[in-house]
Computed example of a mutant assay.
Amino acid sequence: MPGHFTTTTETVTTGSAETVTDLTRLCEGFLARHAEGADGLLNLFVPHATAGIAIIETGAGSDDDLLTALHALLPADDRWQHRHGSPGHGRDHVLPALVPPHATLPVVAGRLQLGTWQSVCLVDTNKDNPERQVRLSFLG
């Protein structure tokens, strides 16, 4: 029996500050339009060398804590060999090794299966790129 596959690309504005942007509603809207009550998998992918996808609690400080941790691990200073853009931009290119540019999540009866406090987030530390593309794909 052939499966159902659909994909789209959405533009997300992250602005000129380091951000953790909640994509959960975007994902839920995509599934409401395309999953048609089916079980399957939702895949998210950001085709950028300086952004990632994280499953994390938001709104209680964890999103800010993630940015603080990334700053401690990847300081925005002149230690990086990759040097163009804002000072310390080389660290933005290391980010996807820690926060991957993709995530695959279960979908049951057309609904995203996240834990109580989990959200799907775009992590963007690159202040030089105010807009990001996010590819959402459903396979059911």
Rank of each mutant, 00 (worst) to 15 (best):
N43L: 03
G61C: 07
F5N: 04
D64H: 06
G40V: 00
A32R: 14
L23A: 07
G88W: 07
P101S: 15
T19D: 02
C27S: 04
H34P: 03
T14S: 13
H89S: 12
T11Y: 02
R79L: 08
F45C: 06
E36H: 15
L136P: 09
L122T: 13
L139C: 10
R111E: 15
T11E: 14
L105H: 07
A49H: 07
F30R: 05
A103D: 10
E36T: 07
T68N: 10
P130M: 05
D64I: 03
V94S: 07
P130V: 05
G61I: 07
S62T: 13
H89F: 11
Q133P: 06
T104I: 09
L136Q: 07
W80S: 12
A32M: 01
L44Y: 09
S16V: 06
N129R: 01
T9C: 12
T9K: 05
Q81S: 14
L95R: 04
H102W: 10
G140S: 10
Q118W: 13
G52L: 05
I55H: 03
P106I: 12
A103G: 07
A17N: 15
A69T: 15
R33S: 11
C121H: 07
A60M: 08
Q113V: 14
V46T: 15
T116H: 00
G37I: 05
E36Y: 10
L23D: 13
D92Q: 09
D64M: 02
Q81E: 13
D92P: 08
